[in-house]
Every structure is written in structure tokens, then in C-alpha cells.
Amino acid sequence: MTGTLYGVGLGPGAPDLLTLRAARLVERARVVAYPTLAGAPSFARSIVADLLPGGIPEIVIDLPMRAGDRAPAQAAYDAGADRIAQELAAGRDVVCLCEGDPFLYGSFMYLHARLAPRFPVEIVPGITSVTAAAASAAQPLAARNEVFTVLPAPLPEERLAEEIDASDALAILKLGRHMPKIRALLEARGLTAKATYVERATLGEERICPLADAPDSAPYFSMILVLKGADPWL
């Protein structure tokens, strides 16, 4: 008998946006695992800090962030998966804490690839930052036959331009230092007035404003929602 690995989506950040299934698994956890970025405190753990049982083992997967070099992060996932595998092989379930949804830009997918061939795995979906931002901004994402596209801002400018032109509605994630590039692309297409900036959706520091009023420097937990507005219900 081996333990089961649970990839648990925790939602966008507000603790009361956890699903009931996620909350139950966290409250009953025997072992938890979660990523950190370059030694910083874990945002995922902070979401469920009040639910975690005291004294249980915590597997911290520290991910070095090096632009263009994935090898250090992959090595960290290898090491984290080995530690999780030891717990699973001993018959203990492991709850892996995942911001947002485990399979939408989630770090859990890298652990899943390493462990699913050997151990039972269950995925608990979470509210995504995209849907949370749309709800906070009271802005529909797409209607009827509109094409909705999720774009990571670090993509090359040419690829971003192609996707923006081809889509009816967009969520542009991972803004950070790419904010000026995204702003310029949208402005060149006359889309600034149709774009909404959302920062830290559902958290106490949440900020929502038209793109024209958004800062030039954006945090990682921010996005731009664009709805071109072809549907007549608008």
C-alpha cells in the first residue's frame, strides 16, 4: 500500500475561496508539500496557514528563478519529487499546495509528471486567477462564439501581436517587467480603452483600474483583461 499524492488548488489567494474538498484535505493532511521562489515565504502555504495541522512534516521545494535557464528549477523538482516519493512509499498521503489551479500554469504539473507513473494521484481543481480577476472587475471574459485567449506576457512581441489580433477576448498574465511592452501593443491596436488592469485579485491589496491608469511596473500577481466587445449584449 502506498500513499496518494493530492494536487490541491487553493484558488487566487483569499482563504474563503477554497473549495470544500481542498479545505478538508488540508485539514486532514499528514504531510504537505509546496513550492517557494528563491527562498521567499510560500504564498500557497499562507493561504491555508490557519487550516494546517500542527507538527506535520512540510516538504519545501525551493525553486531558483533564472531567466532562460530551466535546469536549476528542474533539479529542484527532481529533489522535491524524491522526498515526496519517500513519504508515499511509506504509505503516507501527501497534500501538495498549489496556488490557483494545479494544471493552469501550476508548478504541480512538474511533480505530477515525475510521480504519477509510480503513485496514485488525485487533482483538486481551484479557482483560477483569471476567473477571480474577472469577478473582481465585474467584467465578463467571453460570450457565445468569442475566442478567449490566455497569454503569458513574457512571450516574444511578434507572437503576442499575432494572438492579440486573432482573439476576441484576452487575459494577459505574468506582467511584471513586461508591462510597457503589453501596454504599447494594446495601444497600437486601439484597445487601451477596452483593457482592465487587475492586481492581486481577491487579496487585501487588490487594485482594479482601466489600463490607462495602471502603473508602468506591475507585480507578478497581476493581469490585463481585454474584451473587444463584438457581442451585441455589450
Rank of each mutant, 00 (worst) to 15 (best):
A138Y: 01
V121D: 01
A133L: 02
Y77G: 15
R70C: 08
D93V: 04
D50W: 01
T19F: 01
P41I: 04
M1D: 15
L18E: 08
R114T: 13
Q86Y: 00
A135G: 12
A143H: 10
L211P: 00
D165K: 04
A85P: 01
Y6T: 03
D101H: 02
L97S: 04
L5R: 10
R28K: 15
E199Q: 15
Y105I: 12
E146W: 11
L225W: 07
P72W: 06
Y34V: 09
E99G: 06
T149L: 05
D16K: 10
G55M: 10
I56H: 01
L88I: 01
V32D: 03
D69A: 12
D82I: 06
M223T: 04
P120A: 14
G91K: 06
Y6A: 02
G204P: 06
R183H: 12
K228Q: 04
G126C: 10
D62L: 02
T196C: 07
E206F: 13
G126V: 10
A201S: 14
A132D: 08
A81F: 01
V8Q: 14
A153L: 10
V31S: 04
P219Y: 13
I208R: 02
R183T: 14
L20M: 08
T192K: 02
T202W: 04
L186Q: 10
G55C: 12
L185C: 04
F221E: 00
L155C: 05
G39L: 08
A134M: 00
A161W: 14
R159N: 03
A67L: 13
A166R: 15
C98L: 12
D231Q: 11
M223V: 05
A89L: 13
F148K: 00
P120W: 13
T36P: 03
E206Y: 12
V198M: 05
M223H: 02
P152D: 09
A67M: 09
G3L: 09
A214G: 10
L97N: 01
R118I: 07
I224F: 07
I172Y: 05
A230H: 06
V94P: 06
Y197G: 10
G9I: 14
V121A: 05
L185S: 03
A132W: 02
F108G: 10
L51G: 10
